[in-house]
């Protein structure tokens, strides 16, 4: 059972075509499969993914004060807001906001009200990831003397993004509100982040 010259000339499917196509398909699929580990090795590794959660004691933070803690290599802003700051944050109409989403990690389409960005009964505590959603600088506003920007919350000096007292973007190039990490109150003045 030999392939005759006629087979080739007639343009019919012969064994050589089959071998070409088979080889090309093998190389393409095999190549793609071999590429995946090369790409995936750049992803966060197991030890990074399993980074433990942290507990933070809020008791020493006086009204109007703020602290910064590190979680997963990211700064977490914790602010004990003054009543007027909370009022100001609540008074904002969500429709006016540049980003109407609450940006609470693990939720979707939650309106960006101040209530949604805090825990019920604990509205004075704002716990959020202190990273500007523009290009990742750390906004000013944690220390007493810092410039807080026109909305009284935080101001990112890198490219001029201004956040309100709920950490929502109000002005400048940043597209989104600063994110709220997963956390819960384990005691009245103690939270667990992560």
């Amino acid at each position: 059972m030999a392939t005759t010259i006629d087979d080739d000339q007639q343009g019919g499917i012969n064994r050589r075509d089959f071998i070409y196509i088979g080889t090309a398909a093998f190389a393409a699929i095999g190549g793609a499969a071999a590429m995946w580990p090369l790409i995936d090795q750049w992803n966060p590794d197991a030890s990074t993914l399993s980074l433990a959660s942290i507990e933070v004691d809020l008791a020493p933070i006086q009204p109007g004060q703020a602290i910064t803690v590190l979680w997963r290599g990211k700064p977490i802003f914790i602010r004990n807001r003054m009543p007027e700051e909370v009022e100001k944050a609540k008074a904002v109409d969500v429709k006016e906001l540049k980003d109407p989403d609450a940006e609470v990690i693990g939720t979707a389409n939650l309106p960006a009200t101040d209530a949604n960005r805090t825990k019920p009964g604990k509205e004075k505590w704002l716990v959020m990831i202190g990273i500007c959603t523009h290009l990742g600088c750390i906004p000013k506003g944690q220390s007493a003397g810092d410039e807080k920007g026109p909305y009284g919350g935080w101001f990112c000096p890198c490219h001029g993004s201004a956040y309100d007292t709920s950490g929502r973007i109000r002005m400048g190039p940043a597209p989104r509100n600063m994110e709220i990490p997963p956390y819960r109150f384990v005691e009245d003045t103690k939270i667990k982040i992560g």
């Binding site: 750049w42 990074t48 290599g73 990211k74």
Partner: peptide
């Protein structure tokens, strides 16, 4: 971005 960083922030990886 996390793929580039190999983590959740710019770090040793």
């Amino acid at each position: 971005v996390q793929w580039i960083w190999g983590g959740f922030s710019v770090d040793n990886p």
